[in-house]
Design a protein around this nucleic acid. Sequence first.
DNA 1: GTGTTGAGTATTTTT
DNA 2: TACTCAACAC
Length: 728
Amino acid sequence: MIDLSKLNHNQLKAVTTEVGPVLVIAGAGTGKTRVLTTRIAYLIEHENYDHNKILAITFTNKAASEMRNRIINMLGNINVSWIGTYHSICLRILKQDIDQLGRDKNFSIIDEQDQLDIIHDIYKEGEISIKDIKPKKALEIIENVKTENINLFNIKSMKELNELGIYKYDLISSFRYIVKQYENKLIQNNLLDFNDLLIFAHKLLKENSVIREKWQNKFDYILVDEFQDTNYLQFQLLNLLINPNKLNIFAVGDPDQTIYTWRGAYPNIFNDYLDNFKNTKIHVLDLNYRSTKNILRVANHLIDYNNQRIKKDLVTNNDEGDSVICYIGDTSQLEAHFITQQINDLVKTKKYNYNEIVILYRAKYLSRTIEQEFINNNIPYYIFGDIRFYQRREIKDLVSYLKILVKPKDDITLRRIINVPVRGIGQKTIDSIRNYGLQNNLSFYETLLKCANNQIEAEWNKKSVKEFVVLLEYLFTNSKNLSIVDTLRFIIKVTKYEDHLKSLDQFEDRWENVNELIVATEEYQAKFPNNSLVDFLDEISLYTESDDHKVQSRNSVSLMTIHFAKGTEFKVVFIMGMNEDIFPSYRLQSQNDMEEERRIAYVAITRSMKKLFLTCNLGFSPISSDKLTPSRFLKEIGKNNYQEMRSEMKTISEIDLDWYDSVASFNKEDNYRENNVEFKIGDVIVHTVFGSGVIIGIKSDTLEVAFKAPFGIKSIIKTHKSIKRLKN
DNA sequence: GTGTTGAGTATTTTT
DNA sequence: TACTCAACAC
């Protein structure tokens, strides 16, 4: 039985709304997920909808499983199976129907690492230098071209190139080659990248009316979570999935929390929705249950600076709560030190536990200073999204072996493990095998088989290669009747994988991860006893988040990017690095970008339930050698809305106490001396990458400089443009 | 030819 | 820190 009495007036109206298109504008902490899940339960219990005909789309896998569990809690043993991310929904559709597009159903999905491996191959074959185009850049262009459906051969103007992210005209032919080859390789190996899942599903539903109608009839009701982060392609998909005779769609979102425009989301999608679905019923939720009045005041003040926005303030019946604290440290170390001290206080006075505290930052690299300080002070912490579980080397290795059992012709995967553990097959041999395959139109695996059968006379065809083939054959024949988890254990045993890990660093951590994989596999099999190894591999190929259920019981402070924190809440929130050029980022190109930064800050602030700390420092920028200034967001929030604290230390960086007004007038160059003056030992210099450091040695044309951890002592050419010296 | 090591270089956000 | 690449030992 569902309990509707816990809902407030607006929530109840949204949950019990009529059929047809609905849009719920729900601010942070207003019970968005509760409304969505209760709506699903309501449809099933009160409106007699079939739970197998309800489709709910979430932004993360975590949100999907949370939603599923909540519904099970409300309704008992009813599993709404069509809850998932756009990607997982598309995967399920394609696994059924991709053959309609002339593709094999036995495709597999590649992650970013695989994509980069493929790009490296293309570089080798096309003799493209990594120095001209960095693989990450190539990948960025590939993604842009694919999602925007752009043909690089049609591009003529420099402006169009710039919009894509290409700034040198001479490189266009290289990019054309890379993009074309990339697509070829995916088709040859029957691979789909994350974008392809959406692109192919869209193509399928758009072009094939029989299939489209099949899926439209499959779903009686569609619900969308985090609607503000939907991109154009995803919106088109929704339009194709929705049954045009019913138009039963229920979208929940908050335009102020659009923080994924770089992945194609656009704030104007709310208008598109209203245009597309006439007579949409709009519900607004603005009563916040999460935060104190003080915290909401900060959030409301900040977001009000965005011009392109429908004004809406969050209100709450909660207490005023503690003051929001803004700390300004003279150096990044002092900033980190302040955070540790506060955490120690909060925990020692037993007000809060470590796991109720989160440190949020704009960019991943900012976690390092904090991490160091936490280690020094024995504060338990966990960095989320650090390296995702399934991207870890040991996990990828073992999963690759599993993949090979299912699909030996997957060249990329096979090459990943051919020398793991090390078995004397180096890059030269691998290249030779590959080239032979390319010339003779054989897959990597087929070439290996020829080697083993002595059908290839070549220097590189030697004992170690043959032994690998024997190992593979042994795995194939003896794993046929094993369960998934036993197959995994078998692989670990046969490859002596534990010994291999012992030869690497961090053996304990890695071995623990392997065991975690075994547990995850066992759990999967217990949950879905009829599913095959292929099903398991498909599932985990989309599950990129780190496994967090254990972490919560670990009682440690959480560290994560703000993007990662979306949808979570913590009693105590520290937002660090509130500095110009860090947050907002120095990379911004337009006013729209600035508004997005403000929304990111808004998301960060509204994660907090009880206590909020905003911290910044006046040290040196990790990006340029400039001095940092506090973020404009602090000014926009307004001094009256928080209590300001400063570090006591007097430094050369002492600036006006009224630092707001000094932000613009502060002349950075004043602090530097010309570089052609002679250096002496003890001078402080600033390096664009390593930050500040002290000269500890001077040679004829180089300096020995001691930089802060983790950089340590470096030799720098005296005249190098990346260094500046401080005035004495 | 293979594997290790040290130097050099570079840092937004993620399904 | 994390990643690549060139130089060296085997």
